[in-house]
Design a protein around this nucleic acid. Sequence first.
RNA 1: GCAGGGGUCGCCAAGCCUGGUCAACGGCGCUGGCCUUAGGAGCCAGUCCCUUUGUGGGUUCGUGGGUUCAAAUCCCACCCCCUGCACCA
Length: 955
Amino acid sequence: MRQERNHRESRYNSVVRKWHDLFIKKGIYEGNVDFEKDKFFVNFPYPYINGYLHLGHAYTSMKADFISRLKRKLGFNVLYPQGFHATGQPIIAAADRVREGEEKQIEILKKMGIENVEEFKDPLKWIEFFSEKAYEHLNLLGYGIDWRRKFITTYLNPAYDKFIRWQYKKLYDKGLVYKGSHPVVYCPKDKHAIGDHDRAEGEGVVPEKVVMIKFKHRKGSLVIMTYRPETLWGVTNIWINPSAVYVVYDVGDEKLIISRDVVENFKFQEIEGRVLEEIKGEELILDEVENPITGDKVPILPAKFVDSTVGSGIVMSVPSHAPYDYVALRDLEKDERYREVVERLKMISLIEVRGYGEFPAKEIVERMEIKSQDEKEKLDKATKEIYKVEFHQGVLKDLFGIFAGLYVKDAKDKIIRFIKEKGVGFEFYILPEVVICRCLSKGVVKILHDQWFIKYSDKNWKDKVHEHIDKMEFYPESIKKVFHDTVDWLEDWVFTRERGLGTRFPYDESKIIESLSDSTIYMAYYTIAKYLENPKKYGIDISKIKDSFFDYVFLGLGNLREVAKENGLDERVLERIREEFLYWYKGGFDLRISGKDLIKNHLTMMLFHHVAIFPEGFLPKSIGVNGFVMVDGEKMSKSKGNFYTLKDAYEIFGAEETRFALLYAGNIGIDDPNFETKIIKDIREKLVWFENYVKKYYGKGREDVKEIDLWLMVKIKHLTDLFIENGENLMTRDAVKYGFFEMQNALKWYLRRTGNNIHEETFKVFVEQQLHILSCIIPHYAQELWNIIGNETLLPIERFIEIQEISDSHEILEFEEYLQNLLDDAKELLMLMERKGNKVNKIYMVVGDEWKYLVYDLVKGAKNMKEVMEKAKEEGFYGIDPKTFSDFVNKSFGKIKKSPFEYLERDKEIEWLFESKEFLERELNIKVEIKEEKNVKDAKSSRSLPYKPAFVVVD
RNA sequence: GCAGGGGUCGCCAAGCCUGGUCAACGGCGCUGGCCUUAGGAGCCAGUCCCUUUGUGGGUUCGUGGGUUCAAAUCCCACCCCCUGCACCA
């Protein structure tokens, strides 16, 4: 047996298959309009189907599955649908790679167990294959999804396609989409934007905005690039690279002097022109140019650090505030040829900043002991430092005129505007680092035109989204703020693409709507997908569906008869579709649960679009967000060998075990949960134990009720409440903890306390409630056992058992706690005695006298010792010698204050203690006698405290 | 750089928002015991340090300050770590 190389299939997989098929067949997961019941609509973002679903998908979607079951058992009418996402470029790109015979891609497919790789040259094959697999695999794990509403995106699904087109027409009509241009990192060879995923180098690099400023030169306008336009007031000279080649670039109305290396970049940013002449860098040296703002005449000087491929290949020198400039000038002073010129230059102090004097650059260079401009590392650090403090804390000095007194961070944009308005400069985009395309050509910044934008910058729109977010629930609550932040941060979004799968944009049919933009309001589509995805069944001809259909169904526009006629529908069908939407989408969907990566894009966009399209009363109600699942404490990855698809999990761990471990892996929240493979076995064994125990003892037991039976009942109620409360808040780890582990611990204690002499009815309630709880976690195991103990009904649609409040439940709970403390203390004592070599045959447990309990109450209600003594005096110290009394109070005041018992009465304590005598003897393996203090002579007995009997050992 | 999150007793991880009941939930690991032919599982006890024929004391929650009768919990500064930054699902 042990030699088996592969994991044996879980004993419960067949149980899962059996019941899952039946549940599906019986339609218990189908959400149908029922006005008698409150609805609960939960959904999980449709996964992109370029591969198998994995544990990451399973983790988040299992929370959706769980809550759908919990809510159903609480009496809600539940809708939990699932579609699949095919929009975008990856599938097409992957299919292309197959067609090109790329080995890596083919290998990936083969590893997935696909034999006929050829077929995957066709992107449609991918969609067909992987959406089918996703469906299959979700079923393997027994997801309770209403599959009648399953769909895929893109034009391959004409109904969905029409729905998306309708949405974008709405947005267009509302003026929320517009045509514009924007800068992208662009591959001149492939002729399209290079996203992160198709870069060989330069991941994460984005175009950065800089300012170009034109200095007057005898041959035209010398263009310098700067990140810090505010230092234009302090330019002492210009830097060029003496070994680079510069050109006079005629752009029509003026002649720009820039580096030859950047001419292409200028062209891509639509500064068209032609090169008139080339000038060697060294020829420009010592030429004079004029600062367009201050009118100062400054010389051009050589510097090694100038990169002729960045910006314009020319920069300005501000030695007072730029360490590089200061050092370069200092270096140059040593050069005979330039000494005279350099000595004449005067540093100009521009910015007042705490901690620095007039010339911060000079100070920091001296402090860091930077010797020359070759010390690049130090200089970069110094530059960063100066830039940071000056930007945040720096204030512009008087010579700035209208800008004087402003913080740099506030003045910057104003200065840029000023420069642009004066016509002496313009904005430009550069790449802060080199980007290399997959095709190995170097990326440039290109301004793309004819791009369509969604206007997320719209203030009014943002405000409405904020307003709605305030009304929503978030799990965890802390992410509400993140959503607010994201709404503020989101800028206009380019939503059209040249290539990829998807829906064409109605106002420019050459463009495809990209994937994030076509997945914004499809949750509403689920409500009617039942009809549109099964058109024949309802006599619907999708090709006849027009915008008026969606207008009517989603927005209530138009009248039934006309709309039905226009869309070739039976009026009753249309009415039902509208009704279905109204029912499920009333108050919005109830919960969308997703990975945390979608907060900053999809989820926020989803809110924007809902607010734009749907009226108040149909907007999302709540969002839950999860971290990324780890496996055994490590990020899941194929290279680490801890990557599991749903199918892997089913085969290796078993469906129920996987479900259980996923829910137990973590609570809702952005922390990364941990799926522990080693607890699979524990879970399975616990389940087997319970199953066996139930089979053996269910329906048996005594009839008379004891305190401990009541205790178990109280526990069942308490833990059920905790399970439901945590479950409803998606705290699945805690829910499982209370609903299973603590339930099982309670049962174990109960069996120990009763010595397996269980009370039939109490045990029956325990078992049934345990199965109710488990049917939210592992419904098939629960159903199987439910069936075995003689129930014919389908457990997932049964309600929890309502357990009546037990009147003295607090007292009962306290007594068990008391008993555990007592047992612990006694064990400790006996251990000590044993260690000492003392023989002990019997132990007296001596309950304190009544007056001690009176003191207990007094102390609990009193602020301090004095108050206790005063009150006691009034009562004549309860007939106790005042000295004994005060000694006792002195000794026990602190302990009593900390004591947890509030409800347990002394006579109950004694009564139940007598009932528990056998249990104590069994546990301690010694004779036990319960006594009252007044009946015992031994001096040790006086040590008794309320709720802490004294022990007297007898040999 | 900007934004968000986090540093807790070997590991994972509660608690901190609503200061005290916190030496600090729970799980894993480890140690000892019971059980067992044995291993596994299960059960019991222990797992910061010291002390103790019994309920005791000390020092802890990234670092350093502060507020308070009282701080893991509130405030300030600092150090370190993680994630996202868009045309991509």
